[in-house]
Amino acid sequence: MRGFLAKVSQLDRRVIFLLMAVAVIIPLLFPAKLSVKVTPESKKVFDLVESLQPGDLFLLDMDYGPDTMAELEPMTYAIMRHAHRRGARLICMCLAATGVSLIESEIRTVAEERGMEYGRDYGYLGYRPYPAAVILSMGQDIRQSFPIDYYGTRLDSLPIFRNVKNYRDFKFVLSVNATSGVDAWIMYGKERYNFPLAIGVTAVMAADYYNYLQSGQIVGILGGLKGAAEYETLLGEGERATIWMNIQSICHLLIVVLIIIGNIAFMAGKKDQS
């Protein structure tokens, strides 16, 4: 046993990388079916979208790029599909320069899949820099920040934008975000113009925003892949996030086992030294 523990404490880190790769690849090839427990904060986001009536309009802000798409893309797909199922209309926008084309392709994918028509069922405003200024000016008139949409069309020539002036014309704002733009949405959007705001963030960011949930400054929060998997579960469309979350669980189990073995080996080594 001592020999094994001594070997563990000298283990090449590449072995751990290899174990992690195996823990990801095998369940990807042979998907496991583990249950996903829905948390109240994710349920609140789902309920917000579920409350939409046919024809209702909401603003979906998507601020992420290729580096975080693995975490946030499943979330936006689930939200857009849900909105379409409710018969709601959505206006999308992006405040992250590296994501503007990616977001456009994601919106188009869901629109083609569900037969949504551009300008009637959904619209895409595109990207503008400096989130704080954009969010503040949109509170007065979205045309101040976005006189034209992503494709260069004047907003008033598209039916979906015609009667939209500012946040008051949206049922709520949902920001799926991997940047500090979330703070801007809370500070310059919610606090200044007082509209219902829900967020979806990467797992790294999630812990920093729970206090806003406690204070009622946000309605709900979707945290990383787990949040997306919970949303998919509520939607009854267990797709990518749910499968990926099962893989996460296996990886987490591996990490826990490695931490326990590592600590035992460390303590055994310390005892030997003393």
Partner: peptide
Amino acid sequence: FTAMARISLLIGRMD
């Protein structure tokens, strides 16, 4: 949460 985020990215690339 950080561990979960990093593994998500790995899963995304492997996928």
